[in-house]
Structure formats: C-alpha cells, structure tokens
C-alpha cells in the first residue's frame, strides 16, 4: 500500500501548477525515498524531473515501489478542490487501478475524498548524467519570471550570455531588441534576493522563451531559481523545495535543449 500525508497541502497544488501546462500525463514513481516524476513534453524539447522527498511528509508509507500513471490535467482539477490550508493525503493500493486524494481542513471539520482512475503508462525514463556545468546562476525566481515575460514581447528566443561580470538576457524580433543585464550581487545580506554567478567558463546559449515561461510556473515553490548552463548541453532550471528551516523537501528541475545557431 502507498499512503503519504502532506500537512502543507498547498505544496502539492503548486507542484501540479508547475507541470500541468507542460505535461499531459506522467507516472509518479513512489518508493521509500519519496515521490518522483520524470517526463518529456509532447514535442520532446523539454524534460521535467521532480522529487518530493519522503521526509517532507508527515506520514509516508510505501510497502513496495509503485508507479502511478496519472492524467495530470485530471489530477490538477481534483487538487483545485483542495483549499490552500488543507492537509492532503494520497493513497493507492499496491495493485490499484485508482488513486485516492483526501483533503482535510485544519480544524478537521471538513474532510473530502476524491478517487481518480490510474493510467497504464510505459515508464520510459531518460538518463540524466550528473553534469559539472560551466555556469550556474542563482537569482530570485520572481526576477527570472519577469525577464522571461518581458523579453517575450520582443521575440521567441532569449540569448543568455554568462560571464564573470554577470549575466545578460537578450531578445530580438520585428519590434526591435532588448537586453537585461544582471550584475553579481555585491553584499549578499538577503540570500534570496541575491544574484550569484558561479562561472568556470563563459557560456552563451539560445533558448525558447515559450518553454522558459512554462518553467517559471514553478516560481511559487521557491524564492530562488538556479540556471545551469554548459555549451551544447540542455539548460537546467531548478526550483528547490525547502521547508521553513531550509531543509530540502525536494525539487522541480526542468531541462531545455538549446536552439541551434544558424
């Protein structure tokens, strides 16, 4: 049997919002370590890899590893029936063909449960090698969302140029062109507001803004986002999921293949 109880139910609601526009269906791979999900978007341009660690749940029981095939649009609709301050419990029997979601109000005076059919999905997974990236940019997640939104008015691609001085985002199109330069933060008193560039070597790559704007749907999960880049490998955009003490409860990682320069 699989059963996981999440006191901060809003976290699962935010995770669903961060993937439902990019993925149609995916399998939650549940094991003793936690709940993982990995899937490509339908055009195989982007890959999502997320994890909710077992110790982020108040109760977590996984008698044996189980893969739950889910239609994400349906799961998202059901999670919209949960209030932000509800406790959410996910349950599935080992040989289940359905998954149950239970939403409890904080005062336990309102309990609702929803059962959803599971799908048989072939769980093909891509091997994502550990990569020493040439550049890792840490910045406020709201700032990254704004840059992707603003530059989208100019064109469908963004050139991200990372040097030791900082990072520049550029876009051009029929309307004109635009550049946004972020300097490294000098004094890092408030970490979540800092821009930190860890550069081994300078990198310049071009990416689709359409996909980056899908990724920024994860911004409510974390005040910070990290962009990891190396020449000729996909960009990794990571939103870490930490608890109030800053301990890791998981992450949402997006991988995006670069555009190929003419």
């Amino acid at each position: 049997m699989f059963e996981a109880r999440l006191v901060e139910g809003s976290l699962l609601k935010k995770v669903m919002e961060s993937i439902k526009d990019l993925l149609n269906e995916a399998s939650w791979d549940c094991s003793g370590n936690g709940m993982c999900l990995q899937a490509m978007d339908s055009s195989h341009v982007a890959l999502v890899s997320l994890m909710l660690k077992s110790d982020g749940f108040e109760n977590y029981r996984c008698d044996r590893s189980i893969s739950l095939g889910i239609n994400l649009a349906s799961m998202s609709k059901i999670l919209k029936c949960a209030s932000n301050d509800d406790i959410i419990t996910i349950r599935a029997e080992d040989d289940a063909d359905a998954i149950t979601f239970m939403f409890e109000s904080p005062k336990q005076d309102r309990v609702s449960d929803y059962e959803m059919k599971l799908m048989n999905l072939d769980t093909e997974h891509l091997g994502i090698p550990d990569t020493e990236y040439a550049c890792v940019i840490k910045m406020p997640s709201g700032e990254f969302s704004r840059i992707c939104r603003d530059l989208s008015v100019l064109g469908d691609s963004v050139i991200i140029c990372c040097t030791k001085d900082g990072v520049r985002f550029s876009a051009k199109g029929d309307l004109g062109n635009g550049n946004i330069k972020l300097a490294q933060s000098a004094n890092v008193d408030k970490e979540e507001e800092a821009v930190v560039v860890d550069m081994r070597e300078a990198v310049t790559l071009t990416f689709s803004l359409r996909y980056l704007n899908f990724f920024t749907k994860a911004a409510p999960l974390s005040s910070q986002v990290s962009l990891s880049m190396s020449e000729d490998v996909p960009l990794m955009v990571e939103y870490k999921i930490n608890d109030k003490e800053g301990d890791s409860k998981g992450y949402v990682r997006y991988y995006l293949a670069p555009k190929i320069e003419d």
Binding site: M40, H44, V45, G127, S157, Y255
Partner: peptide, 14 residues
C-alpha cells in the same frame, strides 16, 4: 527562427 534541438538528442533512454 533558430531550429530547436530535442532533449532526447542529449539524454538517452534508460
């Protein structure tokens, strides 16, 4: 518009 690469050109199926 620059042509877009696919992610599974970089990461192989397990």
């Amino acid at each position: 518009m620059d042509p877009q690469a696919a992610i599974d050109e970089y990461y192989i199926l397990n």
